[in-house]
């Protein structure tokens, strides 16, 4: 089993774990961690397929670099929205707003 294939398989396994986590987890931060794990999995598959023996394809690398920065921005936006919901609505399930 070559290195690329190993990391491709690991990336797909990681993607599955992340997907399971996104659906099953109830806490918002855990859901976001699962989404980020799915992101890492996608990056892993991209970078593993970028290797052709000795030469490395720089275009997937650039895409992954862009992806990392956008992922952190998206995570921050989600966290901020969650904080807003918590601060403004004060509780989620049936608790009366303050």
């Amino acid at each position: 089993m070559s290195q690329e294939m190993l990391y491709c398989a690991a990336g797909i396994a990681l993607f599955g774990i992340g997907m399971f986590g996104v659906i099953v987890a109830t806490h918002i931060i855990r859901k976001l961690i699962a989404v980020n794990i799915m992101g890492i999995a996608v990056f892993m598959v991209l970078l593993a397929t970028a290797r052709h023996g000795a030469v490395t394809d720089p275009i997937p690398h650039a895409m992954v670099l862009t992806g990392i920065v956008v992922a952190v921005a998206g995570t921050a936006l989600c966290l901020w929205l969650a904080l807003q919901i918590r601060l403004l609505g004060r509780g989620t399930k049936g608790e009366p707003p303050r």
């Binding site: 290195q3 990056f43 970078l47 290797r51 490395t56 690398h61 992954v64 670099l65 990392i68 920065v69």
Partner: peptide, 9 residues
């Protein structure tokens, strides 16, 4: 995987 730029980021 030889992706040094990505590793730093």
């Amino acid at each position: 995987l030889n992706a040094w730029d990505v590793a730093i980021a």
